[in-house]
Design a binder for these strands. Sequence first.
DNA 1: ATTGCTCAGGGAAACGTTTACATATTTTTA
DNA 2: TAAAAATATGTAAACGTTTCCCTGAGCAAT
Lengths: 344, 344
Amino acid sequence: MEKKTKRNKYATLNDVAKLADTSIATVSYILNGSTKRYVTAELRERVLEAVKELNYMKSAVASSLKGKDRGILAVLVPQFDNPFFTKIIVAIEEVVHRYGYFISISTTVDDIGKEKEIIDKMIGQRVDGFIISPTIQGTENTDHLRRLGIPYVITERPLSGIAQYDFVGCDNWGCGYTATKHLIENGHKKIGFIGWNTLTNVGERENGYYAAMEECGLQVKKDWIELGSLDTVSGYQMMQHMLKTDVSAIVLGSHILAEGGIQLLREENISIPNDISTVIIGTPNWTRLSVPTFTCVHQLEHKIGTMAAEILMKNILNTEEDLSWHHEKLACELIIGESVKKMN
Amino acid sequence: MEKKTKRNKYATLNDVAKLADTSIATVSYILNGSTKRYVTAELRERVLEAVKELNYMKSAVASSLKGKDRGILAVLVPQFDNPFFTKIIVAIEEVVHRYGYFISISTTVDDIGKEKEIIDKMIGQRVDGFIISPTIQGTENTDHLRRLGIPYVITERPLSGIAQYDFVGCDNWGCGYTATKHLIENGHKKIGFIGWNTLTNVGERENGYYAAMEECGLQVKKDWIELGSLDTVSGYQMMQHMLKTDVSAIVLGSHILAEGGIQLLREENISIPNDISTVIIGTPNWTRLSVPTFTCVHQLEHKIGTMAAEILMKNILNTEEDLSWHHEKLACELIIGESVKKMN
DNA sequence: ATTGCTCAGGGAAACGTTTACATATTTTTA
DNA sequence: TAAAAATATGTAAACGTTTCCCTGAGCAAT
């Protein structure tokens, strides 16, 4: 049976009007349920039947040419097979769906060129707004949005050097601080930090670590800090270096790095928490399922997504009560697992 | 600093034409790089400058009214915080981005009503095609697409009772068969199966299990089969029942059920693989990171996404050599971990 | 001197909606 | 009973593109 290749034409208002023997204006009013128009039940019936008969489906493309909102939001993330972003997106979708909008997700793979490409294409589509976890190579792309007056909300990664924009992310400083403090409270004094060095928000995690150490009067040795790139291989390598030091506990600055690092620990038969304690920043599923379960600092991804979407929708629909810029940093939560040994 | 609420107007072809002191036709030809038009370098320059000056960004909305492709594909999945679908989507995005298209992802939460709602909205947007992992409550929604002549490709969950459509999924029968066969080859004879009962594709997994058992002359006891709903809670409960039986090994029909089931095993301090062996269908990350690592049947999600996207794009662009319907069932791969004990 | 090219560019009609405005028939109200 | 209001519908002008069809000028070959 061969595949049909011809594409059917969509029925138009005109087709419907002809079949129902009326005018397109009447059809349009009926279909939009407008109250500005009196229509006899009989005619309404005829029109509705014609619609069904012809499989008429209104073209949002044509409507939005007439100034109607598109009903589309663009969401840009670095990657979306990253549970952190996936969870944010799930929340965004829940919210915007309630508003009758939908989202178009694209991944920038942390490349400012691709980011620009995507943003331009989305502007071309006249999307109503953007939710962006921006790349860190610059702010030109969001500058462009601001110039054009297109509403946008930034998530997770703050823009540097710019004050006037809406932001929702987690308190990365707090993440680092909480993780470190927890280890200290369990009697650890020699604590390592594995992170990466390209993002300002992770720099914050590192600063939180330093703050906790300092607050407790603990000196930080240089080789307790490892910064690499954000992938499992790098996590693996940083853990190799870390094992040559004298730390008794490690803050794993990201779940991706944690995956690599823990892989190494397993290969070397190093026991968690007996040989080394860890706290992971981030809470992917596997931290609950593995043996041992992991102590993690949980970021409220769902709430980030929800808030970002609400702010954007209100901005678009102009229903915002509060006209100042949002700058929300959501607190993190410590989730106790079995990966931290109590020292005495 | 208060938030600006006024939305800037986009510059139009007309604006550009006026500023460059020419006609919109000329501008359009220049911007589209058409060869059907002779234009002096000087005028071209003027136009390009006006474009920059005005921040002109062509409206894909208006173009597509004139019959141009939208450049949008709709992707529908039951959920996307499910690594199985996430991976498919990542692959789809890679492919369509190469074609200069982009995707709009929505989740149906396995509800045929919401599925219809989304499909209608997407048709309204005049998307060029669909990639759908359909709900199982019926085929009306895809029937509708077929009636309208809109290209679509089905992934993972075959439509029942319909022959003429493009399909890409994995060989679920093979998944069940491979998992079971592996356990048998390791000397297990009393093997349980935990699955769920609402999807035809999972029924296939169960059938593969039966086939392997039968092939090896092994009788299946009724209480070795547990079917529930697709969530961790159900997985947990089914494992409870399973533990009351005499099985030495279990095929976990989905990674979601596996999460619940393994949770219980951990709580009860039942050792894998010493007390019980497991093979999981599906390969989320944690199966490699936990202790022990898990033996899994790997489904080629990335390839599913790639093929589905290629088929759809070729269909849309009419570059298809082969006009018969695709019906691809990708073979699975056994990945050996430490969760199966060798019996003798 | 008339054709017939190649260049260079403008005019205007679609595409499928929305909506302001106009028209015509009833019904109500003063 | 005439004017005003309510009811019921049609016409046509946008919206921002694309593209077909013109108009002219300059030049070479009849």
